[in-house]
Simulated scan of single mutants.
Amino acid sequence: MLLVVVLVLLVGWLHSSGKWPFEPEAGPPPVFSTSSPGLGHPVVAVESGTALALLDTLDVKGKVPRNNYQRSDFGEAWLDADANGCDTRNDILRRDLAAVTFAAGSLCLVASGNLAEPYTGEHLEFKRGKETSGAIQIDHVVALGNAWQTGAAGLTPVQRQSLANDPLNLLAVDGPANQEKSASDAASWLPSSKKFRCHYVTRQISVKAAYRLWVTPAEKAAMKNVLGRCPQQAALTSGYRR
């Protein structure tokens, strides 16, 4: 009986002192700096901090209607946003594939390569062609439809083009997995490869912070659940060179 009384008193003290229930320590708050306006720049630059701390800086509210969303609101697909002479799609293929080869006479157009696919954990081969290119697609980690509903509708056209082409928001992935994900957020879709989920939600949080987007209550809860397994996962910076 005495042991029960002691346990009750201990739990009461932990709760009143803010030490119960236990939550992972997010670490120091992230550091931001203002980015230069223009294509190829995030709205703000995330300098340091954990993904968990960065998540707590995002606004939390519901989605706006999507009935007026169009892909063209984010500009022409696969621009040369970083002015390196190659379009964004081929930039990401070149970054994410191994054993890359190029089309004859080109240093940009990726012809083939191997992918350690992040969403499924499988190893895939890429071969350019009408019937084969779709097997590996470039995913917007924060889907453009979701971005539109969580703040991008209020960005300038140039900022939306930057978001759509930012390497931070892009991954070469399995085509069917990308189609399955569609415009889902973390509350309704996560990669089947559980070991990639911490990195996946960290990218989403980092993109949303860089472009001043918000999260829904369910989305934030799902992200916190994933990051509970990796509370010290570092936030990511924009993929554009500075």
Rank of each mutant, 00 (worst) to 15 (best):
N68T: 15
G27L: 05
A116E: 12
T57M: 07
L39T: 13
S238F: 06
H123M: 01
E131M: 08
Q161V: 02
R203N: 03
V64L: 14
A235W: 08
L109F: 12
A81H: 12
D96S: 07
K63G: 06
G113L: 01
G18L: 06
A235Q: 09
L163V: 12
S17Y: 05
A235N: 12
S133L: 00
A186E: 15
G27H: 11
Q70E: 08
A218V: 00
G154R: 11
D139T: 06
N67G: 09
H15A: 13
G12H: 01
P28A: 09
R71A: 15
T237R: 14
L236G: 00
A83D: 04
Q204P: 01
K194C: 00
N146F: 05
L109W: 04
L213F: 05
I92G: 03
E219F: 05
Q161A: 15
W13D: 11
L190I: 12
W78G: 08
A99N: 14
G239P: 11
G12P: 00
A218K: 00
L236S: 04
H140C: 13
T237C: 02
P231H: 06
A116D: 14
V8A: 13
N84G: 13
G85W: 05
A209M: 04
K19H: 14
P37M: 08
N67Y: 08
D185I: 03
G154D: 14
A83Q: 09
A172T: 08
T50P: 10
L93I: 00
Q161R: 15
T34M: 13
C108G: 05
V158P: 12
L54F: 12
A234L: 10
L7M: 05
P29Q: 09
A104H: 06
P176E: 05
E23F: 14
A183Q: 11
D174L: 02
S33D: 07
A98P: 02
M1S: 13
Q179S: 15
L54R: 00
A186P: 00
Q137F: 03
A81R: 11
V5K: 07
H199F: 05
N90L: 01
M1Y: 07
H15T: 09
K195Q: 12
T57G: 03
